[in-house]
Computed example of a mutant assay.
Amino acid sequence: MFIRFLKENRYVSLLLTFLRLYLGWQWLHAGWGKISDGTFDASGFLNGAVKNMSGEHPSVQPWWGYFLKEVALPYVDLFNVLVPWGEFFVGLGLILGVFTSFSILMGLTMNFAYMFSGTTSTNPQMVLIGIFILIAGVNAGKIGLDHWFIPFFRRMLFKNTEKEFPQNI
Rank of each mutant, 00 (worst) to 15 (best):
E8G: 05
E8T: 11
R10N: 06
V12F: 04
S13A: 11
S13G: 04
L14K: 09
L14H: 11
L15C: 12
L16W: 02
T17N: 00
T17Y: 00
F18Q: 03
R20N: 06
L23E: 03
G24V: 07
W25P: 01
W25C: 02
Q26C: 10
Q26G: 05
Q26T: 08
Q26L: 12
Q26V: 12
L28W: 09
L28T: 09
H29G: 01
H29I: 08
A30Y: 06
G31D: 00
G31L: 02
G33S: 10
G33W: 07
G33Q: 07
I35V: 13
I35R: 03
S36W: 08
S36T: 13
S36I: 13
S36P: 02
D37S: 15
G38R: 05
T39H: 14
D41G: 10
D41C: 13
G44T: 15
L46Y: 12
L46A: 15
N47D: 15
N47I: 12
G48Y: 12
A49H: 09
V50A: 09
V50Q: 04
K51N: 13
S54V: 08
G55I: 01
E56Y: 08
E56I: 11
H57G: 01
S59V: 13
V60F: 08
V60Y: 03
Q61I: 14
W64F: 15
F67T: 07
K69E: 10
E70L: 12
V71R: 07
L73Q: 10
P74V: 07
Y75S: 09
Y75R: 10
V76M: 09
V76Y: 07
V76F: 06
D77C: 00
D77K: 09
L78E: 00
L78I: 13
F79N: 00
F79H: 01
N80L: 12
V81N: 09
V81A: 13
L82Y: 07
P84R: 05
P84I: 05
W85Q: 01
W85V: 00
W85T: 00
G86N: 08
G86D: 05
E87I: 01
E87W: 06
F88A: 12
F89A: 06
V90P: 02
L92R: 04
L92G: 08
L92N: 05
G93M: 06
L94F: 04
L94N: 04
L96F: 15
L96I: 11
G97A: 10
V98R: 05
F99D: 11
T100S: 14
T100N: 09
T100H: 06
T100E: 08
S101L: 13
S101G: 11
F102S: 10
S103A: 15
L105Y: 10
L105E: 04
M106W: 10
L108W: 01
T109Q: 10
M110L: 14
N111W: 04
F112G: 07
F112M: 13
Y114K: 01
